[in-house]
Nucleic acid binder design. Sequence first.
RNA 1: GGACUGGUAGCUCAACUGGUUAGAGCACACGGUUUACAUCCGUGAGGUUGGGAGUUCGAGUCUCCCCCGGUCCACCA
Length: 804
Amino acid sequence: MAGKEIKAEKENNAGEKSSTSDSFQIPKKYTPDDEMQMYKLWEDSGYFNPDKMISDLHEESSKTESSTKKEVKSKKPFVITQPPPNANGELHIGHMCGYSFQDCMGRYNRMNGRPTLLLPGKDHAGIQTEAVFTKVLAERGLDKWEIGREKFYHKAYEFCTKNADHARQQEKRIGLSSDWSREKFTLDEGLNKVIFETFIKMFNEGMVYRDEYIINQCTHCKTALANIDTDHIEKKGIFAYIKYPYADDPTKFVTVATTRPETMLGDTAVAVSTDDDRYKDLVGKKVKLPLTDREIPVIAAREVDKDFGTGALKVTPAHSSIDFGIGKEHNLEVINVINEEGKMNDNAPEKYQGMTVKECRDAVIEDLKNEGLLVKVEDFPHEVIVCERCKNDIEQIMSKQWFVNIKSLAEKCIEALDKRETVVLPENQHRVLRQWFEKLEPWCISRQLWWGHQIPVWYCGSKKFFDWKLSNPDKSIEDFEKETGEKVNGCGNAMAAIDKPEKCEKCGKSAADVDIVQEEDVFDTWYSSGQWTFSTMGGPEGEDFKKFFPTDVMETARDILFFWVARMMMMSMYRTGKTPFHTVYLHGMILAADGQKMSKSKGNGVEPADVLKKYGADALRLWYYTATLPGQSTPIMDDKLMGNRNFVNKIWNASRFVMMKLEDLFNENEIKQLDGEINENLMNLKNADDEWLKQTYATATRITDYINKYRFNLAVEELREFFWHTVCDQWIEETKKLIDEDPENKAKFMSRLLTIIITSLKLIHPFAPFVTEYIWQNLKGMGLLEDGHKSGLLMMEKWPVEVE
RNA sequence: GGACUGGUAGCUCAACUGGUUAGAGCACACGGUUUACAUCCGUGAGGUUGGGAGUUCGAGUCUCCCCCGGUCCACCA
């Protein structure tokens, strides 16, 4: 028996013996060192897999009701598709927090008889992993461009697989009862198929399209980014006042003020406010753009703030989103002067071509000064857009990318939120999410990376030709060849397909006769992880999908509400017509002990492994439940963890006391177990006459209620109050007295206490699974649990309160 | 610029739709216990719930103003 074995081992390791009862083997102190032994029992039992619960049910019913042939109906499954951590690095204390809540809900529902699936996985995390792994390669003296795309992909895959193995061990260490047989990686073949199918469906329905648009270009990561992949931070900058001469009278000027003088090379207008009398007469006239030979119009736009700067705004539609908007409205020419690498391109005057943006800025300032067109340069702190990942400056440039028009999906999500088909906790985030859906722009999903899903688009001819045709719809293939000097073999059509098409759908020519080449870009990571709730289940046709979709709860952190949760809702609306989960639970954020955000540079981070070693998984979990409330952020502090460790030890010792007393009782009376009183007590807890048992049941009811309302902090506080201060401090002490006064009834008093302990262990188990299971195995070893679940595991015991 | 959020004991935080005397852990003071646990037990001190006004029979909780933090969104060049 497992319980016996563990007990024996404990005795050997303990090194200290009870001073009260030398014969008693259970050590005084609970040490978390062998928590993983319990994990092994759970894992080996097979019950992390919900199918085992379902098949048990069939087995049982065929035994008892074989003649009636009644249809077996299990309770509704409980499902969480777990947020997949990035497969490129270590898990942090926040991951563990999420797992603790997911596992708590999972264990609670499993004990309630619901076949429970916690579906684990790992995320390939496109841009981040590509950056991390490129660095790893560099450390090995390798360059990604040298080894090439295919090799890079394979090596990155290996790298992630190795990290994932490591992460999985940490996940087990916190007690996560996931079905590892179903673990997925976002680049698994089965998932890829679903993701490609989604794209192809969108493509054929016209929801995805290629367009030239102002996008965020990270010149460091060398890829386009969606708005959400950027941050805004304040940086020191300059504010340059530049004179633009009137075209018809070079002695007169209009002065514009800008933080980005270099972009003036792409200016196509000067805008003034519609109600600015100072410039009234200028509107409609032209000015000469300095350093170039172009003349640009002066226009009136309501976006312009007449009180800011000089009240005259230089308009560069290609490199500023506000200017882009003005340009669209006034039909301005768009001149892109910065390329994907952040250098000045052929559209800039020859002198500046090839300069970096910064070099060009200095050169432009210098040249303006020489021409007497520079009024002044002020220091000016202003907001700049940076890459969310690498924190380098973003250039806004015109670029051709793949976009998804997600407006209709966003509308469906708003409807689902309004109907409360999905509820976000805390409630304020429900409204925040709703507002976010309301102002969604088309989503740029193409990334110029290698690590990810290569977009399943095939061009007849070449991508360059297709893109050229986008901008030159009226021109011919001959024009293209003349302009670019490149030959093209194909009609310029684009098709979506998983495998290379055998012929072009448009011109009908076979792949042998024309070039059919695949798009090189990959999907934005969130495009694939947005499908996580059903891609992990084989897609809308999958076996698991039929059994387990929609899922129940999405438990995650606030910072990926828009990135991920919103995308999952939209993608699920698209593929399944349903919202993928009824509840989004956003746990709180964990800060360092000093109240600051944890960060590597500050060195104030807390390593999960250290905490686990020092206090144990149960103590850490108990802290999470009470401290990391939705919508809050909370510092992780040693004394709090210590308090929770003490509680774990208290549970251990109270149980130890009961076991000791019972062993004494058995020895005195030469019996091996109590009569059926325990089971009777447990069965009748609900209707007990005994005051203590009544109170125990009332507590169980309250805790059940709290869990159902996702108020985990109150559940744990109630448990602590009840177990520590009522059961231990009052009832155990009282029982000692009762036994002293009335030794004849010792068995009766002890069986009442044991009933209370057993019930408490069940109630505590979802929160602190290790210590409770450990005790359970010891109780089992003593023969005190006759009527338990056939697995012999507390994990599989029935929850003390009936939940519908 | 917009939105959200917090200010409660020395510290970190609780307190369901407004409802007894605002709670807990840690820290503190005093006492106890050596036969479950010193990772223990008991007792105690500690609060004008950031400030001000209002609604109400009743406000930590609702409304308004002010002060101080935090977070997110955003195209003031």
